[in-house]
Amino acid sequence: MIKFTIDGIEVEAEEGQNVLQVALDNGFDIPHLCYHEALEPYGACRLCQVEITRGNRTRLTTSCNYPVQEGIKVQTKTEKVIRARKLVIELLLARSPNVPVIKELAEEYSVGTPRFSLDNDDCILCGLCERVCREVVGVEAISFLGRGSSRKVGPPLEINPQTCIACGACAYVCPTNCIKVEENENERTIVRWGRTLPMKKCKVCGRSFAPWFQLDYFGKITEGIPKDFWDKCPDCR
């Protein structure tokens, strides 16, 4: 067990955990957009910045990828932290002025109209979709493309990724909801990647419930689950 303090309150953590994770578990409110507990921390959105004192050195750093250490002092609401977060929010707001979650953050931290020229991108390049596709699903259908100001996330050639199983995990983790999933009776489409796949019908109730590709893939990567498990929808299992 590692003991340290957050805003003066003593907390306990296990070796290998990161500060943000421990803070959230203990009910501290630290904003974050690029962190998900199921994925490797990435430190891209810079919103989870806190001040960490170790020995006699205090510095501003992202808490999502800062490993816990015995005796460190974490401060989540100092003037410096708030100022850093406000700038981050201002930059995010300039990039994506129409994204609800960013507008809410701007309101919470009273950030007005950004000084920077406004863009209208709904993707903030947090990389959650790319990480979930690689780390959790394991198909690597999408990744970062390009660099600098033209950097974006997408499939190779920017359309219709051949390995995508249309599971929708990317849409689920997306903090700005910029990846839309549409379903009709027989097909599921991941709109942003231009991927449409036919869906399998449940053996019991006859309802289309998931793409064939996705179920085949799940069947391959899971062990000890009877084959017909993937023939029934979650409600009928």
């Binding site: 690597e140 990744s143 970062f144 660099r147 499939p155 190779p156 051949q162 390995t163």
Partner: peptide, 25 residues
């Protein structure tokens, strides 16, 4: 060319996205 990258991805084998990520960077 696209088909060369596809061939490399098949032979190495690594996902095509990883190659495109590097080639576009």
């Amino acid at each position: 060319p696209e088909k060369d990258l596809e061939y490399i991805s098949e032979k190495l084998p690594i996902p095509l996205t990883r190659i495109y990520r590097i080639a576009s960077f």
